[in-house]
Design a protein around this nucleic acid. Structure first.
Length: 419
RNA sequence: GUGAGCGUAGCUCAAUUUGGUUAGAGCACAAGAUUGUGGAUCUUGGGGUUGCGGGUUCAAGUCCCGUCGCUCACCCCA
């Protein structure tokens, strides 16, 4: 085979594509019902937008971005995520009003040059929301509650909600200091990856899954929230408790994008393999200002579409109706210019009747036509053979009951009632 | 970027203890039994450079090397 799709980038077609269509449609309904409006931004942005927002040192920017120089010498990147782009667009068009929160959502393709594996593609898709110009802990809690309702509404049965609070900037600096002190004498006992993390970002050691590191991590000092961070997190937890969101406070939950600042959360689902996070998000209070805007807080989350569809499938939930019950199989046995016009009028009648039509021009026996129609599980079959053609009529057959009527094409729409 | 596993028909897989004639089966597809009436059954049929290239051998789907691709995991993340 000469050509194939680029590694980690998939083609999508029926019947899988119908699930995507259904998920996108339902997500739009859900988030628009919650006051969010869609924002569509280009897949290409200047590389700097991402190095600024996600962080120069982050893995994503460091080695996973598709970057290139265009003909004008501009450094561009395929977006690895959408939050920075959404904020850029909102600032560029001055969409933030003084005392009004701005709710936007997006659906689209993201790109990261990682080695593909289960739940990880180089082109993948996210559905995400951003609540801009918000500061209150209640807002963060609402996001988590909305996420929970969204998954339940879609029919995802078993999922876990994990939350954490990264603390104030001071808290984070202090934790980094104490962790560095704590791990310093233990470095040689840590795994190779953790030794690397120790040098680059101690907080990441919490992500380690190597068993030999676990005892050391268990005993490591936890984040001690101070002042408003403490009270904000308490407020969030109590709202989520009232809303009966079953959650786990995961002190080890740290996000890999530098712009996250306060409350962070994650939803994991079953049946996903090693990459089991289906949603992740949190507060990013300094990003708007970092990108040249006013000092306004914000929070949001994004959902991995591929992972969500996998999890829904594992949960036995089917979003798309793939039945062919409203499809009409047309056995077009006559060929020629005049019969072609005849078929076009039939097609029009079917559209008016709200049916889908599958025209088959195969030169095969009627018996085989009906065999195919049966296998496709269509609701009706229209036969136009010698007899019908001579009278310029059609035979309409109900495949479930076997009832069949001869009709003029004009009477076709009404005819569905009688078979 | 690191590691492991796997590439045989459209799909899922076979092919005796390092090898032995013409690489098989199920599903799917197509035709017929039924020349204008379907889902079952039966019969028949089309389909393959065994991913690609090289090597060892009288002989390679099978063994060796390389290469490409896929998968899973690490890493990272949605």
């Amino acid at each position: 085979m000469k050509y194939q799709s680029v590694k980690g980038m998939d083609d999508l077609y029926s019947p899988e594509v119908e699930n995507w269509q259904a998920l996108e449609a339902r997500s739009r309904i859900f988030f628009e019902a919650h006051g969010f409006r869609e924002i569509r931004t280009p897949v290409l942005e200047t590389t700097e937008l991402f190095t600024r927002s996600i962080g120069e040192a982050s893995e994503i920017v460091h080695k996973e971005m598709y970057t290139f120089e265009d003909r004008g010498g501009r450094n561009l990147a395929l977006r690895p995520e959408a939050t920075a782009a959404a904020v850029r667009a909102v600032l560029e068009h001055d969409l933030i009003r003084e005392d009004e929160p701005l709710y936007v959502y997006y659906i689209g393709a993201m790109f990261r040059a990682e080695r593909p594996q289960a739940g990880r593609r180089r082109q993948f898709h996210q559905i995400g929301v951003e609540t801009l110009n918000t500061r209150s802990p209640a807002n963060d809690a609402e996001l988590v509650i909305m996420a929970k309702n969204y998954f339940e509404w879609l029919g995802l049965k078993r999922f876990k909600v994990k939350v954490n609070h990264l603390g104030s900037a001071d808290d984070q600096r202090r934790l980094t200091r104490t962790l560095t002190q704590y791990f310093k004498p233990l470095v040689q006992n840590l795994c190779k990856d953790c030794q690397y993390r120790f040098d680059r970002n101690v907080l990441r050691i919490f992500d380690c899954k190597v068993t030999s590191c676990q005892p050391l991590i268990e005993k490591a000092p936890k984040q001690e929230l101070s002042g408003s961070a403490r009270s904000d997190f308490d407020t969030i937890l109590s709202i989520l408790g009232e809303a009966q969101v079953p959650l786990e406070v995961e002190h080890r939950l740290v996000r890999g994008l530098d712009y996250y600042s306060g409350c962070v959360f994650e939803v994991t689902a079953e049946g996903l393999g090693a990459q089991d996070a289906v949603l992740a998000g949190g507060r990013y209070d300094s990003l708007i200002q970092d990108l040249g805007g006013p000092n306004r807080g914000a929070a949001g989350f994004s959902i991995g579409v591929e992972r969500l569809l996998t999890a829904l499938k594992a949960a036995g939930t089917c979003l798309a109706d793939l039945s062919w019950g409203d499809t009409v199989y047309v056995a077009a046995l006559k060929h020629g210019e005049e019969s072609c016009r005849f078929y076009r009028s039939i097609a029009l009648g079917l559209v008016q009747a709200g049916k889908r039509a599958h025209f088959s021009f195969s030169q095969t026996s009627l018996s085989n036509h009906l065999k195919r129609a049966s296998k496709m599980k269509v609701g009706y079959t229209i036969i136009v053979g010698e007899d019908e053609w001579a009278a310029r009529e059609v035979s309409l057959k109900n495949m479930a009951t076997g009832v069949q009527n001869r009709l003029k094409p004009e009477a076709l729409v009404e005819g569905f009632k009688d078979v």
